[in-house]
Design a protein around this nucleic acid. Sequence first.
DNA 1: TCCACCTAAGTTGTGCACAACTTACTTGTG
DNA 2: CACAAGTAAGTTGTGCACAACTTAGGTGGA
Lengths: 144, 144
Amino acid sequence: MTDAPRLDHQVCFALYSASRAATAVYRPVLEELGLTYPQYLVMLVLWENEPRGVKEIGEELGLDSGTLSPLLKRLEALGLCERRRSGEDERRVAIHLTPAGRELSRNAGAIPQRLAQAAGLTAEELDQLRHTLGRLTAALHDAH
Amino acid sequence: MTDAPRLDHQVCFALYSASRAATAVYRPVLEELGLTYPQYLVMLVLWENEPRGVKEIGEELGLDSGTLSPLLKRLEALGLCERRRSGEDERRVAIHLTPAGRELSRNAGAIPQRLAQAAGLTAEELDQLRHTLGRLTAALHDAH
DNA sequence: TCCACCTAAGTTGTGCACAACTTACTTGTG
DNA sequence: CACAAGTAAGTTGTGCACAACTTAGGTGGA
């Protein structure tokens, strides 16, 4: 046997597992809203400020049009947003929330508490974790 | 506007982003080995101990047969492993490494260093992060 | 013994991620 | 003005995740 890396020593695997476990906790709650986790992320972006272009949304979430175009079509099919070609720049598609889309934020308010409750970490630990992950993500993006 | 949750306050999004950024750093390195990140994880499990059943591998990684069955077929097509029906229990499929599969671990030894270098965190910070993520993942699984 | 139940693996279908490419529109420069 | 270069969004193809289901083999009582 060689000096193969150990699974349980890998930060990358720890991130991968924690991320999947976290979305798994969100899944049943989001299912009540009829959303997947990535769809919920897009709605978060739109609830903060809309209308937004596809590219803007992608920059917030780190996703490209290959992921977002079909996802936004599904949100439109759900009646939560509308895709309108911009008048000034015909390349742009502005994503507007519908009344139903805005309404949904009311039901989404309590969602982040779920994770906090299930996390088994103190508020300070969660806060520090978020901060460390933010630094890590930024550094990894620079490296990439 | 309502009290919609803020994207940048969400630990779940921080995990999701960090996880994708980390696998993005691994991707070009793994591409040289001809592996995706989940395939690399399966190889890590097998390098540690083989043969293994599909279920065992799934328990290590938190993946089910719906994900692993096609993934293992692709690893077999790459000539890295073989799937053999167990004699004692005909339901089981034992995954054996081929010589090429074992050989690959030689080239994989330096991979985890990549992330450590790109992470922009100290060794202690990475260690603590891994530990916190481990606790978090365990708690989230309990909650789920 | 038999058969209801359990278990391992595989299959099907949906929805991300992401690379690579296409299309349509805009802009800067000669 | 013309047109090369750039940009926004969409499309195509591959490979996860995961739910729901199927298939086939094993197991433990009544």
